[in-house]
């Protein structure tokens, strides 16, 4: 079980990091979501992996550590709120910038369109 679990966490983390390095906001958000899944699983495992154990004392002879489960719950709630905020912010950024790139402009335009961008900025002022 440990091996499978570790592979799951590892694959989720690497997918998350790959997506985080993309230029557009939507893949980046997906990357953040995957990374937070991986982290939640990892946190869960910090209480050791057991099966068939109650988290309440006295219910069974052996018991699982309830604290990591509480931590994961908190982390899930916070991660959910942050993802929602990030989505709203990137929609706002899309309407402000006219594109969905994290840097505010597409990578291939950044070099040869800088003069045009400067012109646009000048006109606005």
């Amino acid at each position: 079980m440990e091996g499978l679990y570790a592979i799951c966490v590892g694959v989720l983390t690497s997918c998350g990091i790959y997506l985080l390095l993309r230029g557009r906001t939507f893949p980046v958000i997906l990357g953040l979501i995957m990374l937070s899944y991986a982290v939640n699983l990892f946190l869960f495992a910090s209480g050791r992996l057991n099966s068939n154990m109650a988290t309440i004392l006295g219910e069974s002879d052996t018991f699982a550590d309830p604290l990591p489960q509480a931590l994961v719950l908190t982390a899930i709630v916070i991660g959910f709120a942050m993802t929602a905020f990030m989505l709203v912010l990137s929609i706002r950024a899309y309407s402000e910038n006219g594109n969905d790139h994290v840097d505010g402009k597409p990578a291939d335009e950044r070099v040869h369109d800088s003069s045009i961008a400067a012109d646009k900025g000048g006109q606005k002022e």
Partner: peptide
């Protein structure tokens, strides 16, 4: 425009930072 663009980068970086913080906490608790 400038504030929103700065925000997107600031938020993304800090969300990654939070994920790493949780990893560290998991290791510490473990």
């Amino acid at each position: 425009k400038a504030r929103i663009r700065a925000s997107v980068q600031y938020v993304t970086l800090n969300l990654i930072g939070s994920a790493l913080f949780l990893v560290a906490l998991g290791l510490l608790y473990g």
